[in-house]
Amino acid sequence: MTSDISTGTAQEAVALRADLLRRVEDRLRSLLDAERGRWAGVHEGTVVPIDALSELIASGGKRIRPAFCVTGYLAAGGDPGHPGIVAAGAALEMLHLSALVHDDVLDDSGTRRGLPTVHTTYTRLHAGRGWQGEARRYGEGVALLVGDLALVYSDELMAQAPSPALPEWHRLRSEVMIGQYMDVHAAAEFCADARTSRLIARIKSGRYTIHRPLVVGASAAGRGDLAAAFEEYGEAVGEAFQLRDDLLDAFGDTAATGKPTGLDFTQHKMTLLLGWAMQRDEHIHTLITEPGHTPGEVRRRLLDTGVPRDVERHIDGLVERGRKAIADAPLDEVWRTELADMARRVAYRTS
């Protein structure tokens, strides 16, 4: 499974990864095209959930999870010609699609990547056509099934990956579901608890975005010995990634993020940002839970606490921790440098 392809120039390394990511993209599209062809002759309605997934793929996305997976694989000396790593990268992106569609229902989000979310699209379709039943329940039901279909496809894809990657894949999938539950519960309870907030950030987002995909890739290349270094790196950079998301939700521009801002406020998400702020200013809890508050009021109150500035400093420290974790890892220097650069890019959302 391994080769000496991990050595070379930075340009060669980036080109190898770019080629693998193009193949991941092709694999996603070819899977959905084949599924559509298989079902189209059965009944015209059967292709609706498949088309919904195809539209999500076509809408863009950063492909962060496949990128970390193939980076871990190549850094571990994996053979870039092996089709199994392409399947693994596609599986991670398909799992992410499942999580996005379900997340949008849980968060009652109206847009994703600048377009109406799945449940919003089908709620409007139901209402516009005057169908029987409740439009909202129909839209959310369709979205849940579309997300479940993506989950099914993700498992089919991962079954084609090298078998050493499977234990990490199983941990990743159960972890993100438990993290989602903890997120929902913390929003209902809405108590300032930094320990719980950090746990949610790690298991719902950070590990499944960075840590686990890296280890899936390394395991696929037969380098289980890299798991410890990738865990330390991934835990730090993954938390930085989630904290950046929290800041973008609070202070970002919808035109840039492609989704509504202020959802963490309206959905009472107990992020580390809000948890720290509520510890400094008890009025923030009341402000968010009272009907009629505006995101602008919450933002001003958050800024007054100084917490956003402290979160930025915490992100800086996490990025540095991640870079140190990878500095002495048994990897070619090219890949240590690339992983250090990736830490900065995901934490600060630079291209």
Rank of each mutant, 00 (worst) to 15 (best):
A188S: 14
E189N: 10
F190M: 11
A192P: 07
A194V: 14
R195G: 13
T196R: 15
R198C: 11
R198L: 14
L199M: 15
L199D: 10
A201F: 02
A201Q: 10
R202E: 14
K204G: 04
S205Q: 06
S205G: 10
G206M: 04
R207P: 13
Y208A: 02
Y208W: 11
T209Y: 05
I210T: 01
I210W: 02
H211T: 14
R212D: 12
R212Y: 13
L214W: 01
L214D: 00
V215P: 03
V216M: 11
S219R: 08
A220N: 07
A220M: 09
G222C: 05
R223D: 03
R223S: 06
D225Y: 09
A227I: 14
A228G: 09
A229F: 13
A229I: 07
F230E: 04
E231I: 09
E232G: 11
E232V: 15
E232Q: 15
G234P: 06
G234I: 03
G234W: 00
E235G: 09
V237R: 05
G238M: 05
G238W: 00
E239R: 13
A240W: 00
A240E: 03
A240N: 08
F241R: 10
D245H: 09
D245T: 10
D246T: 05
L247R: 03
D249C: 08
G252F: 08
G252T: 11
D253F: 06
D253H: 13
D253N: 12
A256K: 15
A256F: 12
A256G: 10
T257Y: 12
K259V: 07
K259D: 04
P260K: 09
G262D: 04
L263F: 00
F265E: 05
T266K: 11
Q267P: 02
H268I: 12
H268E: 13
K269H: 06
M270N: 04
T271W: 00
T271F: 00
L272E: 03
M278C: 12
M278Y: 03
H283I: 09
I284M: 04
I284C: 00
T286I: 12
E290L: 10
G292P: 03
G292S: 07
T294H: 10
G296R: 10
R299Q: 12
T305S: 02
P308I: 00
D310Y: 00
E312A: 11
E312I: 02
H314L: 15
H314V: 07
L318F: 04
V319W: 01
V319C: 06
V319I: 13
E320I: 13
E320D: 14
E320Q: 13
E320A: 14
R321L: 13
K324L: 15
A325T: 09
I326W: 08
I326E: 05
